[in-house]
Design a protein around this nucleic acid. Structure first.
Lengths: 143, 143
DNA sequence: GCAACCAGTTGCATAACGCAACCACTCAGC
DNA sequence: GCTGAGTGGTTGCGTTATGCAACTGGTTGC
């Protein structure tokens, strides 16, 4: 069942009903740019997401086909979260949100040097570099 | 005072602390693409935002410098909300979110014909058309 | 004067969030 | 085997945000 009725059929609204909250895109950021794949890794973000919220968001993303969940062959207890093509397609949005924040929010000046470097490369490289990152994700996440 | 401490200085997080909820970007969408400028107009969206939430989001956006609020010279009771340059800079994000939704969320097929047309023009036109829309907003909103 | 319109505000029930503790299970080392 | 660290979560509970409806005080057009 495709969950319940959306508030409207505006594609912007439909998108926001999937990732329109303050945590979902941070989880995706970590999957896209921090190489995280496991629950415990995702729990370690700077923003200190709590485990119940993380569990909820991961389940929701799996339900919407943005992620898949599979077993780690090396450890029966481990789960691996992978981006689908639908999830990888969100990368440009995540990048642009980062670009806007770094350009327009003054606190972004306090970002540490290492993250700043990653950011600068993504912005200066433009869409070509995004596409490279997306291609790499397809390989890593077995899309 | 610049409000309280952010969860982190990641620019993505800083952005989401401003518009990372399911209503804010819908309000901006209506300012950008539906020509709405007054409280009552913004209240009329398909998603049926309630007036207390709308008031809260508008105040928050003004506080963050994304919008300005001014008096309508023709009507002492009317307030006009205008996008700042910082707000206009969010247009590419709004457009990309719409593009993702229309491409990846199946319900988006149910969109009405008129909205579909606006969407198609924005997508086929690419960044050049976005820039035109942004330029038009600068004129209309007196940035 | 009066109805319609304006931008919100208020009160209250429900849902979501945030925190901390806890759980069952697995794996590596001894 | 036993133990201790690591795995992906779950549970309880207090606080905050949301959603709904009614309401307010002022303005405008007729």
């Amino acid at each position: 069942m495709p969950s319940d009725e959306p508030r409207s059929y505006c594609p912007i609204n439909l998108s926001l009903e999937i990732f329109g909250d303050s945590w979902t895109l941070l989880v995706l950021r970590d999957l896209m740019f921090a190489g995280k794949r496991h629950f415990r890794e995702l729990l370690q973000s700077d923003e200190r997401i709590s485990s119940n919220i993380l569990a909820d968001r991961l389940a929701r993303l799996v339900e919407h086909g943005v992620l898949t969940k599979s077993d780690d062959p090396t450890h029966k207890q481990k789960a691996i979260y992978s981006l689908t093509e639908k999830g990888i397609a969100l990368l440009p949005i995540v990048v642009q949100i980062g670009a806007w924040g770094s350009r327009w929010v003054s606190d972004a000046k306090k970002l540490d040097a290492r993250s700043r470097k990653v950011l600068r490369e993504l912005q200066e490289g433009g869409p070509r570099v995004w596409a490279e990152r997306m291609e790499a994700l397809r390989a890593e996440h077995g899309a």
